[in-house]
């Protein structure tokens, strides 16, 4: 119980410090931010040591088989090379390790995006227009088609909004094509609607967190 009380008091104080930003930037707010950053960094360091380096590198180097040990030399050497980034003169030694990380991460991201997002999303965008399939699955084809049309129009119009190609008219003025102009106008509505939805989601998330914080403060006083 005393531990929970101390935890609750610290949480209360830090919460008030963060909320003090309402009156502007002040020392209490900066103190809370610095505490948060420091604690987070220390926590991350502890996590990296105790949950990554120790169990995944050091222990296997001692207990694993020779093959596994030999394979662990590669991440060990790469880790040492990355540490060379600290020194400006030796930072070039960390280049290969960083290159490997960036290359591997890019390859993984691109492969996942292509196979996990683009192709499935293209397939999903065309699926609402599969009236036969919807009928076979017992769905409402009109609704699906409408959704598909809205989604398609929204996608095309949004892409048209970001299309800046134009041609010069006989009078010298530069203007986009009429159809592109109309789609761009419609796309602007979809963009505004999307941003509104995203803002609403952010607001909903923030308001939920705010309510949770107020609840935690009230709970400290028995509410």
């Amino acid at each position: 119980m005393p531990t929970e009380l101390i935890y609750g008091a610290i949480s209360f104080l830090l919460t008030l410090m963060v909320l003090s930003y309402l009156i502007g930037d002040n020392a209490l707010f900066r103190f809370a931010i610095h505490v948060f950053v420091g604690v987070s960094a220390g926590y991350v360091a502890a996590v990296a040591i105790y949950q990554v380096i120790w169990p995944y590198l050091l222990i296997p180097l001692v207990t694993a088989s020779m093959l596994e040990r030999a394979l662990l030399v590669v991440p060990l050497v790469f880790s040492a090379l990355i540490l060379m980034k600290i020194s400006p003169r030796l930072s070039w030694l960390g280049g290969p390790a960083v290159g490997y990380l960036v290359g591997a991460g890019a390859a993984v991201a691109i492969g996942g995006a292509a196979l996990g997002t683009i192709l499935p999303q293209v397939n999903a965008a065309a699926e609402p227009f599969d009236v036969i399939g919807l009928i076979q699955r017992g769905g409402n084809p009109w609704q699906s088609v409408f959704n598909g049309v809205v989604m398609l129009v929204g996608t095309i119009s949004t892409l048209a909004y970001f299309h800046f190609g134009a041609s010069r008219k006989t009078d010298g003025s530069v203007k986009r094509n009429g159809l592109i102009e109309a789609l761009a106008w419609l796309g602007k509505l979809f963009v505004a609607l999307t941003l509104g939805v995203l803002f609403a989601g952010v607001y909903a998330a923030a308001l939920s967190a705010f309510v949770e914080r107020i609840q935690s403060l009230l709970s400290l006083f028995g509410f």
Binding site: P120, T194, V197, G201, A205, A206
Partner: peptide, 26 residues
């Protein structure tokens, strides 16, 4: 997901890559 991430995850739901979504407090 959080309410702020739900709109961006919705396409994966529609595509069937995820099988259900619970977003936010709602």
């Amino acid at each position: 997901s959080s309410a702020q991430a739900a709109p961006m995850i919705q396409p994966y739901l529609l595509s069937g890559q995820i099988n259900g979504l619970v977003s936010g407090l709602h």
